[in-house]
Every structure is written in structure tokens, then in C-alpha cells.
Design a protein around this nucleic acid. Structure first.
Length: 409
DNA sequence: TCTGGGGTCCTAGGACCC
DNA sequence: TCTGGGGTCCTAGGACCC
């Protein structure tokens, strides 16, 4: 029988910020993006709610009034990546089968060892000593139970889920503690009188399938500890399927220029990330949400793959114009590139004329400058029409990919 | 009761073809 | 020309994760 560990770095973002600024240690910390600061909405509201004992939904200004000790911190992705990589450095002393799950969680395949708990405790101790943050670890014979073990007790704890104790430990927990049971699934299951993970485990699989499709059968298996999925190694991370950015604007997006400015800023980021991964896309999708919170998405297939902001922008604007509704006020826009392919080995097509190639070369040159002198050193003129709308910083990739892993150590 | 943003996967329905 | 059935592909939307 296999032994699998799931390590969860506790309260990760805030903990890392405290490492760099000891003066905020022990204070309630809200990690805020500049976007959220601009909007005056707090990202990590629960910190504030906990600290001040107030309702959530406050603006930063409100929050500061309600919670005088509140410190707001801009996100430092580079710092989180470094700590994430350092944690993986520790794991790699024990196994080379490490699978990331977001920036602060990993599964470790320890083979057939019977020293799972002992190793878990040792890893926790090292993380505390070498990184200065705490971790909770789940030890079990499959990935799902290992993950639920790391959620079972926090912070800084080890929980072992065995074939003998899983019914006692997990079955009495509410449905929402089960992985892949979100709000919608919970609601459906409750209609049939299910309240706990145990109820799910002993339900009729055929009923679950009728209710939830494929997912229903999967959940039934998981709740009973039947999960034989493998822990994949760090160097076999799945291929990226899509790259996208979206933003909620500081004010309503009304005019054509508003849309152009916002889309161009998003397309610049998406295109630069595509190029960094040495990829191109065949499909461009846009997301729009209006002030009534009505959302829709539309996508468009291209005849030849692209990786420039200009080309993605053209597709995005075409989709927008085709689907726009006169007078509609938009609140949020998004652009996503999918149907990706590697740029190497791509044949030039009829559509790759000289102008297109020059454009691509120009954007690659801009990448170079932006990496040397900072993001947004070179931008498209379109984004300058309205600095307020284009000043946001779209998020980057946030997982530590194998080829960047060493760089952060 | 949905914070905002970045992803993946599944599914229902429509278009199209034979 | 219509009907029906089967298969495939695409799209939009929803659900889930962090």
C-alpha cells in the first residue's frame, strides 16, 4: 500500500509577508492587490472580519476605521514563488514525486514506507525552521484522503487517515468538507437528505450519477477511499491549456474607447505570457459582465495561430462588436487564449505575411525591454488613451513551473 | 451572500452530415 | 420534400479548485 503526503503551507500569503516585515507579525493582515486597493475592496476580508468582529463587505477605508490595527500589503508574487520553491526543495530530499496544487500545496508520493507520520512531522519541523512558516500535513493511502487530512487540523499538525480510521474521522464531517463538493453540489445532495460525507459514501451511486453525472460516481468513490490517481512528478506538470486575464474596472466601461483601452491592456499581458511560454493560440475568448452582473462569454477560432497583443486584440474587439448591446454599461472584461500550440516547428502559412512577422518581432523586443526595465515600460499607444482604465497590473502565472523552480532557490 | 482573478473539466444543446 | 436516427464537432455556461 502506498503512502501519500499532502502538505499545506498555512496562511501562506500573510505568513510570507510577515517574514519580510516583522513589524506586522501578529497583526491582522489583509493581502490586497493594487486592483483591490484602487477599488477600495479588501481581498482577504475574513482577516478583517476575524480581527475586528465586523461584517464583511467593507471598503479599505471602512475596514481601517473598523479595525485600526489593519495593515494593507501589496502582493509580492516573487516572494511567494521563492517560498514555494524552498518548500519543494525540502520535499525533494524525501521523494522526487512531488505534485503541486497551487502555490502552497503539494502531494508527495512516499512509496511503500510505513514511516509516513514520522516523515510528515520531520517535514513540518524543517518548514518551520527553514522557512519560518507552519504547515499541516495529511498522511494517507490516496491523494484525496491525504488532502483531507491536511485540512483536518491546522495549523502545524499532522493527521493520518487510514483504512481503519477514515470512517470515524471523515464520515461525520459536513458535505462541504469533501473535495469537489461546492455550493451547487451540496445544495443538490441536501435535497436528498444528505448532510455528511458518510451520507454521501453510503448513497446509491446510481442516484448520485443521475444527480451529478460523472462527478457523482467520482464523489462516491472518493468518499469511500477509492482513489488510485497517481502523484505526478514535478517535471511532468500538465501542459498549459489556456492563458487569460480579466479585470473589474474602476468605473463603468461605456464607450468604444473604454473597451479598447481595457482589452488592449489585457491582451498585452496575455500575449506576453504566451510568448514567455513559447506558445501561440488558435482561439480567443472574451468575457464580459455588465452592471447588472449579467455575464457572457464568446469565442472565436483563428485561421492561423497568434501570439501578439495586436492580433488577440483584433479578435477580442470583433467578438465584442458582434455581441454588443447598445447602451450597455460593462463592469468587467476578460480575454483568454486557448487551443494552444508550441511556437517551435510551426510552419509559416499564407497568412503570415511580412507585416505580421514584423509586428511579432516588435512585441518580442518590447518583452525584452519590459523584463529589463519593468513591466509596462513599453505599451501599446491604445492603452494611453485612458490611464485610469489601463493602469491595472494583470496577474501573472502563479505556479512555480519546473523550469523556473531552480531560479527561485 | 457572493470578494476578485486565474485556471480546468463537464455537459446540454445546436449545427451539420450521412 | 419530409422524417428519423446516429454520429461528430463546437459553443456557452456552470461547477469546482486555489
Amino acid at each position: 500500500m502506498k503512502t501519500i503526503l499532502h502538505v499545506d503551507l498555512n496562511n501562506f500569503y500573510a505568513s510570507v509577508e510577515c517574514m519580510y516585515d516583522p513589524s506586522i507579525r501578529g497583526l491582522p493582515v489583509a493581502v490586497c492587490g493594487d486592483i483591490e486597493l484602487r477599488h477600495g475592496i479588501v481581498l482577504a476580508k475574513n482577516y478583517i472580519a476575524k480581527a475586528a468582529g465586523v461584517k464583511t463587505g467593507y471598503t479599505i477605508a471602512d475596514a481601517k476605521r473598523a479595525c485600526p490595527g489593519l495593515v494593507c500589503v501589496l502582493p509580492h508574487m516573487d516572494r511567494y514563488m521563492r517560498f514555494s520553491a524552498m518548500a519543494k526543495g525540502i520535499y525533494s530530499d524525501y521523494t522526487d514525486k512531488i505534485e503541486s496544487f497551487g502555490i502552497d500545496e503539494c502531494w508527495l508520493d512516499m512509496g511503500g514506507t510505513d514511516k509516513g507520520v514520522q516523515t510528515a512531522d520531520e517535514i513540518r519541523k524543517r518548514i518551520r525552521k527553514e522557512l519560518g512558516v507552519t504547515a499541516s500535513v495529511g498522511v494517507s493511502y490516496n491523494k484525496i484522503f491525504a488532502k483531507m487530512g491536511s485540512d483536518y487540523k491546522k495549523p502545524d499538525a499532522t493527521t493520518e487517515i487510514t483504512e481503519e480510521n477514515y470512517k470515524d474521522l471523515l464520515w461525520r464531517l459536513p458535505l462541504s468538507d469533501m473535495m469537489f463538493v461546492g455550493r451547487a453540489t451540496e445544495k443538490k445532495l441536501r435535497l436528498y437528505g444528505m448532510e455528511t460525507i458518510g451520507d454521501l459514501a453510503s448513497a446509491d451511486p446510481r442516484l448520485l450519477e443521475r444527480l451529478l453525472g460523472k462527478n457523482g460516481l467520482l464523489l462516491h468513490r472518493f468518499a469511500n477511499g477509492r482513489d488510485n490517481s497517481e502523484v505526478s512528478a514535478l517535471n511532468e506538470e500538465p501542459e498549459i491549456k489556456s492563458i487569460g486575464n480579466s479585470t473589474t474596472s474602476p468605473r463603468d466601461i461605456i464607450t468604444d474607447d473604454d473597451v479598447r483601452v481595457t482589452f488592449m491592456a489585457l491582451c498585452e499581458s496575455v500575449a506576453a505570457r504566451l510568448r514567455r511560454h513559447k506558445m501561440k493560440c488558435y482561439t480567443v475568448a472574451i468575457d464580459e459582465r455588465n452592471t447588472e452582473l449579467f455575464a457572457f462569454t464568446r469565442q472565436k477560432h483563428l485561421v492561423s495561430p497568434v501570439c501578439t497583443a495586436d492580433e488577440i486584440f483584433a479578435a477580442a474587439m470583433e467578438l465584442h462588436r458582434f455581441n454588443r448591446r447598445p447602451g450597455e454599461k460593462l463592469r468587467s472584461l476578460g480575454v483568454r487564449a486557448s487551443s494552444l500550440c508550441r511556437e517551435e516547428g510551426l510552419q509559416l502559412t499564407f497568412y503570415d505575411d511580412e507585416k505580421k512577422q514584423k509586428k511579432e518581432a516588435a512585441e518580442r523586443a518590447a518583452d525584452e525591454i519590459n523584463s529589463r526595465f519593468g513591466r509596462k515600460s513599453v505599451v501599446h499607444g491604445t492603452t494611453m488613451i485612458d490611464r485610469e482604465l489601463s493602469s491595472f497590473l494583470p496577474s501573472d502565472d502563479r505556479t512555480v513551473s519546473p523550469d523556473r523552480f531552480e531560479a527561485y532557490l
